[in-house]
Amino acid sequence: METLSNETLLEMQRRMLRIRAFDERASKMVKRGHIPGTVHTSIGQEAQVVGATMALRPGDYTTGNHRSHGHPIGMGSPLGPLMAELVGKATGVCKGKGGSLHLADFAVGSLGESGIVGSSIPIAMGAALSASVRGTEQVALAFFGDGAANQGVLYESMNLSGVWNLPVVFLCENNQYALSTPAHTVTSGVIADRAAGFGMPGIRVEDGQDVLAVYDAVSTAVARARAGEGPSLVEVVTYRYNEHSEGLRLGTDYRPVDEREAWLKKDPIQLFREHLQSTGVSPAELDAMEAEVLAEVDEAVAFTDASPYPDPSVAFDDLYTDTEYAA
């Protein structure tokens, strides 16, 4: 395991806090009707997201899914335009055309989140193809869930990226459920083991609540990709605390109560706070960081509130680069 600077370790905690605070606020805003529609939070999965995104470097690419706020935040995207996007403001990162399901911030390599489960996986592979043909050292990482791991396109993409030896990491966020469906009831075998069939490494991070464990595994895969040794599959076992989406009330107890309690005790942010304290970071410094992040989210909301809604005519822009909409 590489030794990380204190600065990097603190940045990990800061990004996890950002994701948590952003998503907690978004959850409230959905319930109050401030955000139209719904959002899917990454609360509980912050270590998995940040361990992966911090293993990348500027210039690298990511694609994601519907549980999507954490991915650009993890890549360093500023919170204001992300929050404005969730509300549908003109200053949103996608000008109000994407919303929660389709965040993208190309400035940080976030090539877009996909509302269609599994659909963005080959897009990341294509970004890796581009890096490979252009001869850069960029790496692409595709985030997808345990549910998406049963989409055929993942296996086409693993095969093709293996054949072309592309610098791509397939990152399965195994939060153990696809909506109400427990992963083990629809998944034959172990997801990470499927990599063997394509002649690539498959790593399973059992403790996905440990940001350093995730960082380590993903760093190995990223280093391999950057060195021209091809793709890897990383499966991270984690847990979402909230309902599949905010405001959703399923009539059945598809998740045992004690299961959730047990995972709450392994909270990734609390665990890493304790780790940082054990290395000598003071509680006061960590408290200050939490306050700063909360203030950042407040600012993002203030930015959102102060922003106008887009002019309705904007709905007809940006379909093509050079062709006006013809009524």
Binding site: L111, I123, G126, S130, V133, E156, S157, L160
Partner: peptide, 22 residues
């Protein structure tokens, strides 16, 4: 480049490559 018979990932890969400079 020859591809495997994998139209879905071919089309997706082309999209991702087009979004990133090819």
């Amino acid at each position: 480049r020859n591809t495997p018979i994998s139209e879905e990932s071919m089309v997706g890969a082309a999209a991702g490559a087009a979004m990133t400079g090819l």
